[in-house]
Amino acid sequence: MRRYIDFYLAAMKISILQDFQYAVAQLFYMIGMLVEPIIYLVVWSTVARQMGGSVGGYTPGTFATYYIVWTLVRNMNIVFTPYGWEWRIKQGQLSMELMRPIHPIHSDVAMLAGMKVVMIAIWLPVAAFLTLFFKPEWNVTWLEILVFFFAIWGAYLIRTMLLSMLGLITFWTTRVSAIFELYFGLELILSGRLVPMSLMPVWVQNLSVYLPFKWTFFFPIETLAGNMSPAELLSGLGMQVVWILLGLLGLNLLWKVALKEYSAVGG
């Protein structure tokens, strides 16, 4: 355990140092990422005003809250994508990582966790600007803040497991973009990334409860932006734990099979 803590601290430090080297680039990257939520926010705020002030219980103020928290959650659940797996296999980087006495997933989790420290530092002024501009309605309790803290890391881990499993497909073939795109399409609709889940048809909402996507976007956003009861907050965290454990199990099983297929094509 001590070895892992030592590794995580060292890897996160390296990641922070690297990302600070390119802090300005990271800022522009984040500004680029703002386009998506701002479009959603403007569209839904306009719809809410035209519907007499609210739609599905969301006012322009609560939409602003939702999409400002969205920007942080989106940054927090950036993980190593299947495209990254494809790249590192082709470049031969994965072979070098496989020679280490530590699972490459630990490296991914630690490196991207370090990056998030830098992202949060950059996000704070961006969020302040968005708050001034879009006037969100905040109604937050200490419990919600505490749950949000765990929920964003939970979302990060669930997404890591899911996208790593998808990434492992590249052990069989290095041309699987179509499958990845299908995944991202499903995630867009069923996670709350495109629109709050409560605005989706009831059958979609019901379906989303049994799938992992909602727990990576809508749940962490709503812990801060919504009005969830303590029971809903805790059961949401419980669902995240379930998906993390299922992801771990799936990843472990798939990893064992995938390693036998690894052909180290890139070196």
């Binding site: 590794f7 060292a10 390296i14 280490r100």
Partner: peptide, 16 residues
Amino acid sequence: DLPALDSFELQRAIYG
């Protein structure tokens, strides 16, 4: 992007 010393430190942690 980093001096080798930083990467060596990571190697230290990886191999304990």
